[in-house]
Write a protein that binds this DNA or RNA. Structure first.
Lengths: 208, 208
DNA sequence: GTTTCTGTCACATTAATATGTGAAGACCGC
DNA sequence: GCGGTCTTCACATATTAATGTGACAGAAAC
């Protein structure tokens, strides 16, 4: 039996989902439905549901902030964001806040039930386009590293581990001055003017 | 009609999948099946399939490296990794290389066909546990920022934009010395000894 | 076989960062 | 009110990083 709670300011959707869950009362039990984050934050920690379906656009505290406050109290809680919006920021903010799934509201009731089952089974239910967004976010963008020589990449790699010039020199068995020479060229190629900027550009463009 | 190519060193699996695809010849066309990455790299750019099912553990060049070389030539190609392994590094390396999906070999033939359909429909088919791994990778680990004061976070934020002490001082309208003072405290709290390390720790722990 | 690129090293100067010590005003909780 | 923390600023000094210039050897390219 999976204990489910709902957080959505739309009464119709809340009631609709509750009916759907009751139709599958052998599997699911809806132990709470709330119209705003404030109420949810008060009640959910006591109710200890297994899964929460959370809307994002709520009056007052947003679903994402609600999730952020909920997660430390109930680390084992699986939260599925259920919302109409699916822009980059909203999705990634939700995942960073600890959401385990993200489905858009145009999903069928059966899909939503599947998502609840899936998330309890250790999965991460996501609408197709959301999953693709998430996956492509890993892909390294255009290879800005192509211009760097092998040795320069080695030096940059060392810098990206937090090492100083001297430590890099020791690690690569070259002199401090040679390290400087490479770094100067790295700066020119990456168009930066400090170690910090070089590291940041490297992280952002996934050069190494 | 979706044009599919297979890359796997297991003959049985190749032939099995080809049979399954033929059983759905109204939807799918298998236009190539290769036992190693070298052959695949030679043939696939000419064949221009829509989807490639790619094993990772291949003799010689790995499936991930094969994908890396394939992607620039065929940017619109959807590659699904189909493998027995599902450790962190393998999964994330695959996604960074440009894979659009990742399913384990214990998936049923019907699941594999679903995955091909899904990936062509703009989705990112993944086995449950893989999806969860991907999603949880976004979650910020234990809040190491809790110990930082608001002002310290502001300073660290500036540093993480590549600014120098002087620029931070200007941005926050405080003196260079005050910036230094904050940074010293940040170092102590994060247990680091340079801007680079502070930035790296911040990125890794998603402190800001 | 000369040029080009890469990697190596050296010397010199200026700018920025790291570390230490001290102190004053603001704000909060007890 | 008093002690604590946060924020602010100052002076001093040592280390590190940034920038400039010059040079040499090996490998690859022409």
């Amino acid at each position: 039996m999976i204990k489910v709670a709902l957080v959505d300011d739309n009464v119709d959707l809340r009631e609709g989902l509750q009916i759907v869950l009751k139709e599958h009362s052998d599997e699911f039990e809806c132990i709470g439905a709330f119209g705003d984050a404030e109420t949810a934050l008060k009640k959910i920690p006591e109710l200890k549901p297994d899964v929460v379906l959370m809307d994002i656009n709520l009056p007052g505290i947003s679903g994402i902030d609600c999730l952020k406050q909920l997660k430390p109290k109930l680390p084992n809680l699986d939260v599925i964001m259920l919302t109409v919006f699916a822009d980059d920021d909203t999705v990634f903010d939700s995942l960073c806040a600890g959401a385990c799934g993200y489905i858009t509201k145009n999903a069928s009731p059966e899909k939503i039930l599947d998502a609840i089952r899936e998330v309890r089974d250790g999965g991460a239910p996501m609408s197709g386009r959301i999953a693709r967004m998430v996956v492509t976010s890993f892909k390294a963008p255009g290879d800005a590293a192509a211009q760097l020589t092998d040795r320069e990449k080695e030096v940059l790699d060392q810098l990206c581990k937090g090492k100083s010039y001297k430590m890099v020199a020791d690690a690569l068995n070259i002199t401090h001055d040679t390290v400087r020479h490479h770094i100067k060229n790295i700066y020119k190629k990456l168009e930066v003017h400090s170690v910090s900027e070089a590291i940041l550009k490297t992280m952002k463009k996934k050069i190494i």
